[in-house]
Design a protein around this nucleic acid. Sequence first.
DNA 1: CTTGTAGTTGACGATTTAGTCAACAACTCT
DNA 2: AGAGTTGTTGACTAAATCGTCAACTACAAG
Lengths: 204, 204
Amino acid sequence: MGRPSDAKERLLEAALELIWERSYGVVTIDAICEKAGVKKGSFYYFFESKSALSVAALEANWVQNIKVKWDGMFSASIPPLDRIRNFFQSTYENQLLVKKEYGCVLGCPCFSVGSEISTQDETIRIKVQEILQNQICYFESAIRDAQAEGSLPAGDAAAKARCLFALFEGSLGQARIQNDPEILRGLAQTALDLLGVRSAVSAA
Amino acid sequence: MGRPSDAKERLLEAALELIWERSYGVVTIDAICEKAGVKKGSFYYFFESKSALSVAALEANWVQNIKVKWDGMFSASIPPLDRIRNFFQSTYENQLLVKKEYGCVLGCPCFSVGSEISTQDETIRIKVQEILQNQICYFESAIRDAQAEGSLPAGDAAAKARCLFALFEGSLGQARIQNDPEILRGLAQTALDLLGVRSAVSAA
DNA sequence: CTTGTAGTTGACGATTTAGTCAACAACTCT
DNA sequence: AGAGTTGTTGACTAAATCGTCAACTACAAG
C-alpha cells in the first residue's frame, strides 16, 4: 500500500556504478542522487548514509548479478577445471566489454571498495569480506571436485583457492591501474598452471 | 639561500602515511597539513594540489624507502629463489609489524591508491604504474636468474613475474580487507609453488 | 470517495573544504 | 649590516556537501 516507487533500486544501481567507475571516496550523495534521478530528501528516506547505501548496493549486486552468474559458471554439471578455465576467460572478456562501454577497465568493485575503505568503515569492510569469502568458496569447491576426479593433485584446497583468488584480484587490480584488459589475456592458462595442471593443449 | 625548512619533507611523509592508513579520497589537505604541522599557506607554497603532493610522495617513498629495501632483498649476491622466498617472508613479517603499530593491516600503498583513483587522476595513475612496473622487474630478473642457473624451468619470465606480482598484490589486498596478516603466512611457499619449484624442504 | 500510508520535493542552515593573499619572519650571501 | 631570497602565517572567500524538514503527492484498500 502507499505510493509505489523504484527509487530505492535506482539508488542502489547508481551508487554501485558510480563507485565502481570512480571510487567510494570521490562519489558524493548528491552525485548518486542526480544519477538516480532522485532528490536528496528521498535518499535519506531510504538510507541513512552513503555507507549504508553502499552496503546494500554491494549486497544487491552480489545476489542479483554476480552470484547468479557464478552459479552458472561453477555449475556442478561442468568439469571442474573447465569451470575455472571458463571463469577466467570470461573475466577477461567481461573487462574487455567494460572498457568498451565505460572507457576504462574497472576491475572488481567489491575488492576495490574493500581495499579503499577497509580501515575506515567497518560495516562495508564486513560486507565485502563476506562476499569475497563467498567467492573463494566457488574456487574451493571446483578445486575439491577436480582433486576428487583426479585432475588435480591432492593438497590444501582452501589454500589453493585463496591463492587463485589472490591471482584473480591482483590481476584485476593491475588491469584497472594500467587500464589495460590485455593483462587478463592468458589468465585462464596461468590459473591452471598455478594449480599444477600438466597442460595438455586441448583441441577445440 | 633563503629560509631553510623541512616542511616539504614533512608534507610528503604525512601525506603518504595518511593515505596509506585511510585512503586517498578521505584524506583532506587540512588533515595532511595538521599532521605535518604545516599551515595551508605553506602547503600551497610547495605543491599545487593534493594530487601533485601524492605523486611526489609516492615517488619519494619509492626511491628513499622501498627501492633501497628491494635492492637489498633482490641483490644478485643472493640465490634467486632465496630472494623470492625472503621477499615474501619479509612481506608477511612487515605487515605483522604494521598491524602492531597502526592497528590495521595496510597492504601496499601504491597499489591501493592506484586502484582507488586510476580512473580519476591520470598523473597518479601514471606514477603508480611506473613504480609497479619497476617492482615487477625485480621479480622478473630473479626469475630469469633462477632459470639461468637451472633452478626454475624455462618459460616466459615476464609473464611469470606478472603472475607472481598479482599474487603478491592480491594477497596484500585481501590481508588489508580482512585486516589479518595471517593471510600472508605461507605466501613464500605459495610463490615458489606457483613458479613450479619442486619443493625440497630445506633444513635451516 | 475517503483515508491512511508510502514516497517526493525544494528550500534551508550548518559545516567542511579548497584555494588565495598580503604581510611577515628567518636565513644566506656579500 | 644590508639586500635578496625562501619560507610562514592567519585570515579570508567561494564553493561543495551534508543532513533536515514540513508540506505535498500518489496510490491502495475499504
